[in-house]
Amino acid sequence: MVERRPALTLLAHLTLILGVLIVAFPVYLTFVASTQTAEQIAQSRPLSLLPGDHMLETWKLALFGGETSAGSKIPAALPMLKISLISALVISIGKIAISLLSAFAIVYFRFPFKQFFFWAIFVTLMLPVEVRIGPTYEVVADLGLLNSYAGLTVPLIASATATFLFRQFFMTVPDELVEAARMDGAGPMRFFKDVLLPLSSTSIAALFVIQFIYGWNQYLWPLLVTTEESMYPVVMGIKRLVAGESYTEWNVVMATALLAMIPPALVVMLMQKWFVKGLVDTEK
């Protein structure tokens, strides 16, 4: 029997509400700033907590670009959002596909030096990004992949973490399933497609959410491999809005920042059930 304690329940709810307020308040301030003009933001000390009446023109300027009343040129956020979306999807799907296949090979195939190759993949977890980023950039530059989607995504689609997680999960699959599939005449790829992939669906969903956000928030790598504004992702676009002009249009910066939050937030909300299940599933 579960003992009910109203005081502890109230304390837990108050703690949760406080946490939500702490997280949501900066987002609300960002929204308020995006509904005002740059002059109002510069003159208001402290910033007003009530939305202004310039939301439509600010968001239109952030999405499609143009010139402000102060003469600042604003780049359109829509192409940058498209680049970020394509990069995040390619990185997340590529990481999952390669990790699934590599884990499948390590667990279910016998070949020379299998453990050596597994540990070689695992050791890459200990190498910080800064160690690998120089040689990786040189390879990308030599292949002529600068300022391209391939240069933005291909060097980031390998994941030792995802390979390790799928390998650990595949090792928990009962041997009876393998034997049953073999008796039914299923080959390796059919077993992979019809048995392992459905069993791994929750893990795939959880990893997709994590890797999508990872790909969407990339800044250092795009900063190196893109020199043309037409290939800037939205994270670089926000930085350019802040440092690109002598006069910063903070209302447009805030609107662009909110636009950059929407796709990852939608992915998390739409896949929340699968994400939580993939992290806490007792079968893992």
Rank of each mutant, 00 (worst) to 15 (best):
F170S: 04
F31C: 07
I96G: 03
P51D: 07
L156P: 03
V23S: 11
I17V: 13
E245W: 12
Y214A: 13
F169D: 01
V178G: 09
P26V: 07
M236V: 09
T153Y: 00
D281H: 11
I213K: 11
A257W: 07
G151F: 01
L146H: 06
L61R: 04
S200T: 08
L258Q: 09
L196W: 04
S84D: 14
T202W: 15
K239A: 11
T163Q: 10
G52T: 01
V131E: 08
L224V: 09
S148C: 01
L241R: 04
L259I: 10
F113G: 04
F169E: 00
E228A: 12
R182C: 06
A243D: 09
V129H: 09
T15H: 08
E39G: 14
R240C: 01
T58V: 08
S230W: 03
G71A: 05
P112I: 00
L146T: 13
I22P: 12
P222N: 05
W221N: 00
G244M: 00
M80Q: 13
K284G: 09
S48T: 10
W59R: 05
Q168C: 07
D53A: 12
F166C: 04
S246F: 10
M1H: 14
M231H: 12
L21M: 15
A70R: 14
L85C: 12
P79Y: 07
V234A: 09
L127G: 07
W221S: 00
E138M: 14
R167T: 10
V280A: 11
G66N: 08
L50D: 12
A12E: 12
L18Q: 05
L199K: 02
I98W: 10
T153M: 04
N147R: 04
V253K: 02
F122G: 10
L270C: 08
D184C: 06
Y149V: 06
P135S: 01
T202R: 15
V253Q: 01
L29E: 09
V90R: 14
L49K: 08
T30R: 05
A265L: 15
F113K: 14
Y232M: 13
W221I: 02
S92W: 01
I210Q: 13
T124C: 03
K82D: 15
P198G: 02
V23Q: 13
R240Y: 06
A160T: 10
L266W: 08
P222E: 05
E67V: 15
P79I: 05
R240Q: 10
V252Q: 01
T227Q: 05
G66I: 08
